[in-house]
Design a protein around this nucleic acid. Sequence first.
DNA 1: GTCCAAGCGGACGATTGCGTCCACTTGAGA
DNA 2: TCTCAAGTGGACGCAATCGTCCGCTTGGAC
Lengths: 226, 226
Amino acid sequence: MTEASRITARDGVRADARRNRERVLVAARAVFAEHGIDAPMATVARRAGVGVATLYRHFPTRDALVRGAFAQQMETCARALTEALADPDPWQGFQQLVETVCALQREERGFPAAFAAAFPDSTSEHAPYRQRAERDFTTLVRRAQASGALRADFHPSDLAVALLAHCGLVTALPDDGAASRRLVAYLLQSFRTDPANKPLPPPTALTLRSFPIATDSPQGQRSSRA
Amino acid sequence: MTEASRITARDGVRADARRNRERVLVAARAVFAEHGIDAPMATVARRAGVGVATLYRHFPTRDALVRGAFAQQMETCARALTEALADPDPWQGFQQLVETVCALQREERGFPAAFAAAFPDSTSEHAPYRQRAERDFTTLVRRAQASGALRADFHPSDLAVALLAHCGLVTALPDDGAASRRLVAYLLQSFRTDPANKPLPPPTALTLRSFPIATDSPQGQRSSRA
DNA sequence: GTCCAAGCGGACGATTGCGTCCACTTGAGA
DNA sequence: TCTCAAGTGGACGCAATCGTCCGCTTGGAC
């Protein structure tokens, strides 16, 4: 951290440039949270109080901007994995990991979309990081299974399934997070070996308005991924 | 059905108009499946072999088109609820219901997006249908709980949570459905009172490439909701 | 066969977002 | 203080999509 800022400070980068870069990142997070990850670049620029050109100079593609904006959240995820491995109780670590990542997804609006968008990038790039993450998580899973708390047929890929599903849920429902908590609780319980009768968080206020009950049922307005 | 087609046939609607309407619906399903629900209207028109104006005449808004295109799927969902209620074993009915709806979401590409889009429409319209669906489903839940198979703290709103999460998953991963089946199995197990040791479907081939492991980790291309 | 209203198609103007170009400004080293 | 390269902003050209308008075509009643 100190390291990082010192490098930045003496990078030969002009002070105003560095300041603008930071302003853009703050604005990007705000705008992505408000209008979704597809918000116009110009909106971000205006919010940051800089011109479009400045924005494009710092982040040549929308992707770079998204990556920059959520770098901190990414780091938090990475740290969560490390901490999970360090936990003496592997199940505890596993649970913490899932809960931390899901909390991040639910709290930082815009992040879930970024998270989901990260997926298609199946190929090559940054493979070493990914491989380390996979190896670490697999280790965690094995330990938790050995401790008897995690069901034996849990497969590491199930984490991806769970996180993507959760991601979709919070994206569809930018609410107070009740639904998210409920889903996480259900999933964690189904991953456990024994029922582990911890009570669920309170149910959501959702109605079944989503359930298509008739041909001419409420199909609703497509909301443009607000 | 016969009723419906007879009405259509003698509706004073010209034969070519009726034919075109049908062609548009077929094309819409195909295009939505291929390019997502946000595909340009012109693409649908071209695919249907009609002009844009014809498309707009039959379906004045994109929403109307989506509704029209997936009306059949909506009906299937509605029927599933009726059948679930009719099942002598309420848990069996419950399980069938969830599986049917999820199978539909995973098989008819484009439908999940339509399903999710249906949500924001919280207000008023078609309230009677929705209320009936809610009442019926609540009845099913109560019966399944009384039979001892469905956990006592399951709340009807949890169906919405589960379906939206599943929706998000299949939208994010247009794969062969392995992930979807896995999620559904996990969820159903966590809804059951006893562990009900039915084996899970095989794990997916997903890697953890979605897991952000470092600041500059693979963030990936935003794929335009292909 | 004749007729005409219902139906049709595609051109069109408007709107929105993208990313670049270029003339102006400014931080900071000498 | 002076200088100039690094940095900046917004105008601009381009492309995609929307939804409408209007002149042509055709189904089907008589």
